[in-house]
């Protein structure tokens, strides 16, 4: 994986002994949001161009042409790829050797400020509102918003900020499978999710399908979202049993004759299927499914202890450490 140095030169400054300053974190979070809103990741762009070239049906081919034109327009004009920016959120990988000048409170403050600024600078839609009164503060910031999920990485001296913008009401499902359902139950639940939302193109296909298997009900949902949003297209789980399931589910999803936007097509419904597992109750397999739309938006910026910042093509949310097993 190649790293590219980010365009944050103006705020590059060596970090004093006290840790990464808040201003640097704010600029990094801002840049992660900017990339998420305006610039599709390279793996996603490549997948769409490939599908456009392969598609043999006129209607979905036209749709794929428009999808490609759109991601170019978004990047050239610095407009949001899709007007539905969803509920902008952050995944943060925290190196175990990292210090923040103002502590974690300072990091969270930086993220909230960056979210408000990017909303007004890029004219993002302010989706975040009070769930009962619908009062909308207009900046995508509020109670538990933006939500930040953390994980820790050993022997690392950086904070990696990944912003994800995902809109849409359609495509996220849950099923509590029991011990007797086995692999066919998993297949069926994915098929259910595609039948429910893939027809009529409600998920805005081509999609990345994330499947979360195991853990607890809430955990299965979280890892399904992370699987869809935080792994690049083409990536396979290190556990061969999980990887084989990913291949098999992808083949099923693409055997249904659904193309871009749900129209009958030949190039496929999904660009990939990613499965994450968590060890679970011996009687049950809670299962989450998250279908990530054609506006597959993530932006990743790493801030190192020496003040270096870099944008990265994919987040390192999943690592050998985060998927470790056994007693340490």
């Amino acid at each position: 994986m190649t790293d590219t140095t980010g365009g944050l030169g103006s705020v590059l400054s060596p970090v004093a002994g006290g840790g990464i300053p808040e201003t640097l974190l704010e600029e990094a979070a801002y840049e992660a949001h900017r990339l998420a809103a305006t610039t599709l990741p390279d793996d996603v762009k490549r997948a769409f161009v490939g599908m456009r070239d392969r598609e043999q049906e006129e209607l979905p081919k036209r749709v794929l042409e428009a999808i490609v034109d759109n991601f170019h327009a978004a990047e050239d004009d610095q407009r949001p790829v899709c007007a539905d920016v969803g509920v902008p959120r952050i995944y943060a990988v925290i190196g175990n050797e990292t210090a923040i000048a103002g502590g974690f409170v300072s990091f969270e403050r930086a993220v909230r400020r960056a979210t408000g600024r990017i909303t007004s600078d890029l004219a993002l839609r302010s989706n975040r509102c009070h769930p009962i009164t619908r009062r909308n503060p207009g900046n995508n910031v509020g109670v538990f918003a933006p939500n930040i999920e953390y994980r820790v990485e050993p022997d690392a001296d950086y904070i990696e900020i990944c912003a994800v913008h995902k809109g849409g009401a359609f495509g996220t499902d849950f099923r509590m499978l029991v011990d007797g359902d086995g692999l066919p139950g998993i297949r069926k639940a994915v098929l259910d999710a595609i039948a429910e939302f893939g027809r009529r193109g409600l998920t805005c296909p081509p999609v990345v399908i994330g499947v979360g298997l195991g853990g607890t009900k809430d955990q299965s949902f979280s890892i399904a979202k992370q699987a869809a949003q935080l792994r690049p297209i083409g990536d396979r789980h290190p556990d061969p049993d999980v990887a084989a399931l990913e291949d098999e589910l992808l083949e099923m999803a693409n055997s249904l004759g659904i193309g871009a936007m749900g129209y009958v097509g030949t190039a496929g419904y999904a660009t990939d299927v990613h499965v994450e597992i968590a060890y679970t109750h011996s009687a049950l397999t809670p299962m989450g499914v998250h279908q990530l739309c054609q506006a597959t938006r993530r932006g990743v910026v790493r801030v190192h202890m020496d003040g270096r910042t870099e944008t990265r093509p994919t987040p390192s949310w999943f690592s050998d450490y985060s998927r470790r097993m056994g007693v340490e």
Partner: peptide, 26 residues
């Protein structure tokens, strides 16, 4: 939607019913 329904039916035919009817959302 009508044209792809037969493909779903084909895939569903390969899979057994769930053990339990519904204890989740789908």
């Amino acid at each position: 939607v009508d044209s792809v329904n037969k493909n779903f039916a084909r895939e569903y035919a390969k899979l057994p019913e769930y053990v339990l009817k519904r204890i989740g959302e789908i």
